[in-house]
Amino acid sequence: DETGKFLVLALYDYQEKSPREVTMKKGDILTLLNSTNKDWWKVEVNGRQGFVPAAYVKFL
């Protein structure tokens, strides 16, 4: 149950560059965990948590 969690859509592919980031593919649906930083949002994708560039995702 994803109640209270926001979902975001990956607009572009992103390859993680550090262990704190996660890789996503364009079209992936991600669970948004934290968006307090304007540049990097914490998400969960494929069972992994990490950061992606905020400009690469949008709210569903």
Rank of each mutant, 00 (worst) to 15 (best):
E2C: 09
E2D: 14
T3C: 10
T3G: 14
T3D: 12
G4R: 10
G4K: 14
G4C: 10
G4F: 12
G4N: 13
G4S: 14
K5A: 11
F6L: 13
L7G: 04
L7Q: 10
L7K: 11
L7M: 11
L9W: 07
L9I: 15
A10D: 00
L11E: 05
L11W: 04
Y12D: 08
Y12H: 12
Y12C: 09
Y12A: 11
D13F: 03
D13V: 02
Y14C: 02
Y14F: 08
Q15H: 15
Q15F: 12
Q15M: 14
E16D: 05
E16P: 14
E16Q: 14
K17D: 06
K17G: 08
K17M: 12
S18W: 06
P19R: 06
P19V: 09
P19S: 09
P19Y: 08
R20E: 15
R20F: 14
E21P: 04
V22H: 03
V22R: 02
T23D: 04
T23V: 03
T23A: 07
M24S: 01
K25E: 06
K25Q: 11
K26R: 13
G27W: 05
D28L: 04
D28W: 08
I29P: 02
I29A: 04
L30A: 10
L30C: 09
L30K: 00
L30N: 00
T31A: 09
T31H: 12
T31S: 09
T31K: 13
L32V: 10
L32I: 07
L32F: 06
L33Y: 05
N34V: 07
S35R: 12
S35I: 09
T36H: 14
K38F: 07
K38T: 09
K38P: 13
K38M: 10
D39A: 11
D39V: 14
W40S: 03
W40F: 08
W40V: 03
W41E: 00
K42V: 15
V43W: 00
V43L: 03
V43D: 00
E44M: 10
E44V: 08
E44I: 07
E44F: 06
E44G: 06
V45I: 14
V45N: 12
V45R: 13
V45K: 10
V45C: 08
N46K: 10
N46I: 04
N46V: 05
G47F: 05
R48N: 06
Q49W: 07
Q49A: 12
Q49H: 09
G50Y: 02
G50P: 00
G50R: 01
F51G: 01
F51Y: 15
F51A: 03
V52Q: 00
V52T: 01
V52N: 00
P53Q: 02
P53E: 01
P53C: 03
P53V: 02
P53R: 03
P53A: 02
A54T: 06
A55T: 15
A55M: 11
A55F: 09
A55V: 10
A55H: 11
A55E: 13
Y56P: 00
V57N: 00
V57M: 05
K58T: 14
K58L: 13
K58W: 09
K58D: 11
K58C: 11
F59D: 08
F59K: 14
L60W: 11
